[in-house]
Computed example of a mutant assay.
Amino acid sequence: MHASPRPLPGLTVPASPHTSRTLVTETVLVLGVSLGASAVWSVLNIIRKLTAEAPLSAQTTAMNTSAAPDRPWLDLAYQLAGIALALVPVVLALHILAREMRAPARFIGLDLARPVRDLVQGLVLAAVIGLPGLALYLLARELDLNTTVAPANLPSVWWAVPVLVLASVQNAVLEEVLMVGYLFTRWAQAGWSMWTVIVTSALVRGSYHLYQGFGGFVGNVAMGLLLGWVYTRTRRVMPLVMAHTLLDVVAFVGYAVLADRVDWL
């Protein structure tokens, strides 16, 4: 039984030779070796934090930490290896799609065909998401629904900022290609409705951010809903990648620069 092509607004996916069950199973397995596994650890992480003696707002979630602070060259190797290995699921997803279409990266809009328009759209999306996201984080922390997030914790070395920028790009490519480009294609081929695809992807996105707290969950679900809706209109993940990269660069590098200068972060 072949899965029939399913039109989403602005997106018509090609028919797949696989059944809907096979397609969904495939996506579960891809998630299981990538962001789905992160979601499982994130759920366990929030349970550990909720059952700790200290309230959520008194706990700190440290990101981009040093692996060998006393040996900068080894620490750099750890950071670069982590970034490279985190992108393997992206290659896997594109490889899977390439078995049924000629240019999967181009099909999902992961190319440089419209650099200026993609950048402008990315800037607009980053602005729309960024300020409300920061306000939500501060409110959730004030209500004891979120941990204090420390996005950058690398030592003061020459490569710290470049690595934080690379980590931002890696996060953006991994999340937007998998959670939007790949999953939207496969779930549409499986016969899911547009909003079922958008909402399910957004909930998964929120779940692997639960380690930050409930503010991180809600904020990323909202982000996933917006980015998913935009993708169904543009059929391009590049604006999403650019927006996500900008948001993470501001969060990571901005924290590294301002953490010792302001007390509200």
Rank of each mutant, 00 (worst) to 15 (best):
W192V: 09
V257R: 13
Y231T: 09
A84T: 08
L92G: 07
P239S: 10
G224N: 12
Q121F: 14
L35R: 12
V13W: 02
G181P: 03
K49M: 10
L174W: 02
Q59A: 11
V241M: 11
A150K: 12
M1P: 11
A93V: 13
V24C: 07
L240T: 10
N153G: 13
V197S: 12
T148D: 08
D248F: 05
L44R: 15
H244I: 04
N153M: 10
R48Y: 13
R106I: 02
H18C: 09
W73D: 08
A103W: 08
E26I: 12
V262M: 12
N45A: 15
R48E: 15
L119R: 12
V177I: 12
T19I: 01
H244D: 01
G133C: 03
S66A: 15
S38C: 06
D263Q: 11
Q212P: 08
S34D: 10
A86C: 07
A222M: 15
G36W: 01
A81D: 00
S42M: 10
R117F: 03
L136M: 15
T25D: 13
G82R: 01
S42F: 13
V30P: 03
G213H: 02
L97T: 06
D70S: 09
F217V: 06
P151D: 13
L226Y: 08
V116S: 05
L110I: 14
L123G: 15
I96Y: 14
A15H: 01
V180E: 00
W192I: 07
A98Q: 13
G36H: 05
A37I: 00
T148Q: 11
T27R: 02
P239M: 05
I83G: 00
G36T: 11
P162S: 00
L166K: 00
L35D: 06
H209S: 00
G191D: 04
H2G: 04
V120Q: 08
I83A: 02
L94S: 07
D111C: 10
T51A: 09
L92D: 02
M1G: 14
N146M: 03
A105Q: 04
V120S: 09
L23E: 09
Y137G: 10
V241Y: 11
L44H: 15
G181T: 02
